[in-house]
Amino acid sequence: MGIDSVIGGLIIGLVIGLLGKLVAPGKQAIPIWLTIVVGVVSAFLGTLVARAFGVEETPRIDWLELLFQVVISAVGVSLAAGFYGKTSRR
């Protein structure tokens, strides 16, 4: 795994995380690093779920796979916002 694949994964994680944050209902007051983490995890989980449903890899953009990733990211962002917001800051 080279530096280009790590940077690519972070960029994809950021995009998926931001799309999930955009789709999730309500306001999510979570930091950008948590959005990236949720996005990266969602990208991997979305790909696994899409493959389990029989979505094949294509040479172009897999819109159905991207849909799975964004939906999982929206759920992840909502959960992360709920857990992150419960920490006390007194």
Rank of each mutant, 00 (worst) to 15 (best):
M1I: 08
M1W: 13
G2K: 03
G2E: 02
I3Q: 09
I3L: 13
D4C: 08
S5E: 15
V6L: 06
G8M: 13
G9A: 05
G9H: 08
I11C: 00
I11T: 01
I11A: 01
I12M: 10
G13Y: 09
G13E: 15
G13K: 14
L14N: 11
V15H: 09
V15E: 07
V15A: 09
L18A: 01
L18M: 04
L19V: 08
L19Y: 06
L19Q: 07
L22N: 07
L22F: 02
L22S: 01
V23A: 00
G26P: 01
K27V: 12
K27Q: 15
Q28W: 08
A29F: 07
I30A: 10
P31R: 08
P31W: 06
W33P: 10
L34G: 04
L34W: 04
T35W: 04
I36V: 11
V37D: 11
V38G: 00
V38Y: 02
V38T: 03
A43T: 11
A43F: 10
F44L: 12
F44T: 10
L45G: 06
T47R: 14
V49C: 06
V49Y: 08
A50S: 15
R51K: 14
A52T: 15
F53E: 09
V55Q: 13
E56L: 15
E56M: 14
T58Y: 14
T58S: 10
T58M: 11
P59T: 14
R60T: 13
I61K: 04
I61W: 05
I61H: 09
D62H: 07
L64G: 13
L64R: 15
L64W: 05
E65S: 11
L66D: 08
L67V: 11
L67Q: 08
F68V: 13
Q69F: 03
V70T: 12
V70A: 10
V71D: 07
V71E: 03
I72N: 07
S73W: 03
A74C: 04
A74V: 02
A74W: 00
V75I: 05
G76C: 00
V77I: 02
L79F: 03
A80G: 01
A80E: 00
A80K: 00
A80D: 00
A81F: 05
A81G: 05
F83Y: 04
F83C: 07
Y84C: 11
G85I: 09
T87R: 04
S88A: 08
R89L: 02
R89M: 01
R89W: 00
R90I: 03
R90E: 05
